[in-house]
């Protein structure tokens, strides 16, 4: 699945002016799509522009978006983690188990985060220590982690989370800004700094572009990848805490199918699935786009399964369109 294209990369003699480059960049195009969707939504439904409706809309995507932030880094480094939704299930199950032993809210949160991180360590060790392809490893751990949930819970559910725990999924920090949404914004800034403003972030790009060259340049490829798996696990743990608190219950089928939605969000955000390119701004805007699509169509009574058609088509279209436009332009200039 790597390097099947045999075409050489085009390197221009003169770069575009910074302004033109910024306007034509992926995040700017996405932002235009997001704004268009926002306006369309506002025109289509009179209920859309209410602050509380918009606030409700954020609950649809914040948990997935938090995982997408870490997943973006992982995919830029050339790896992938398909077990994130199963990590949510396992972390949520562990919190439920702890609850049965009378653990309080701080303990529950700690257990959720630790389980997530531990799953990330497990994935990371398998991928980096044994040099296994991450897509297969995480398809395996995807069954394995959720499988443990099923063994523990069967067809039962854990309920009875304390009200103080609910705050993480249902509380508001200020007016209509929910705790979840505020946390997402803070994490987005942190991830932006990590990826685009630190040495560690540069190393992620270098690894994704050329792992061999990265190794010869002194980048500790395995360690960086291992840390990224841990980080993705930890963010899945965070999402598990938020989602469990929002639903106030745990079933083994919690968050089923989220892994593909998270990957869709990341790819939509302009991250190259083959690694080496991408930005946090893009992923954040893509999260908003997916939130707007699902919420706007929901207001119009479009069933969830039909919305998924839009998301799937959007995913292919946003990647196909620039390619088609470039080809057309090449054909015209020739």
């Amino acid at each position: 699945m790597k390097d099947t294209s045999l075409t050489a990369r085009h390197i221009p003699d003169r770069l575009d002016s910074p302004l033109r480059a910024a306007l034509l960049s992926w995040p700017s195009l996405l932002l235009a799509v997001a704004i268009a969707l926002f306006v369309l939504n506002a025109l289509a439904s009179p209920y859309f522009l209410s602050p509380w409706a918009l606030s409700d809309a954020t609950f649809n995507f914040t948990e997935k978006a938090i995982i997408a932030l870490a997943m973006a880094l992982l995919i830029i480094s050339g790896e992938i983690d398909l077990s994130v939704a199963s990590i949510i299930a396992l972390a949520s199950t562990m919190m439920g188990l702890a609850l049965q032993f009378g653990v309080g809210t701080p303990g529950l949160v700690a257990i959720g985060l630790l389980t997530g991180a531990a799953c990330g360590v497990f994935n990371g060790l398998l991928v980096t220590r044994l040099a296994l392809p991450s897509i297969v490893v995480t398809i395996g751990t995807m069954s394995f982690f959720r499988g443990i949930s099923y063994i523990t819970l069967g067809d039962q559910a854990f309920k009875g989370y304390p009200p103080s725990f609910w705050y993480f999924g249902q509380g508001y920090v200020w007016w209509v800004i929910s705790f979840e949404f505020a946390l997402f914004l803070i994490l987005a800034v942190l991830f932006y700094v990590l990826l685009h403003r630190t040495n560690f972030g540069r190393q992620i790009f270098v690894i994704g572009n050329n792992p061999v060259a990265a190794r010869f340049s002194g980048v500790r490829v395995e360690r960086v990848k291992f840390l990224l798996f841990c980080l993705t696990g930890l963010m899945s743990g965070v999402a598990a805490v938020l989602l469990t608190a929002r639903l106030a219950s745990t079933r083994p089928s919690i968050a089923v199918g989220w892994e593909l939605e998270v990957v869709t969000m990341v790819v939509l955000g302009g991250v190259n699935i083959l690694g080496g390119a991408g930005s946090i701004q893009g992923v954040v805007i893509a999260a908003f786009i997916m939130g707007l699509v699902t919420f706007g169509l929901g207001l119009l009574n479009v069933p969830g399964i039909v919305m998924s058609i839009f998301i799937g088509a959007l995913l292919i279209a946003v990647i196909a369109l620039p390619i088609l436009v470039r080809r057309l332009r090449e054909r015209l200039t020739r």
Partner: peptide, 27 residues
């Protein structure tokens, strides 16, 4: 065709058609 003609990675294409085909059943 999407993989061949447009050079989009197969995992992305089939991730998209996975949801599209599933949704089409409902339609």
């Amino acid at each position: 065709a999407l993989v061949w003609r447009l050079g989009i990675p197969a995992i992305v294409v089939t991730l998209g058609t996975l949801t599209i085909y599933r949704g089409a059943i409902f339609l």
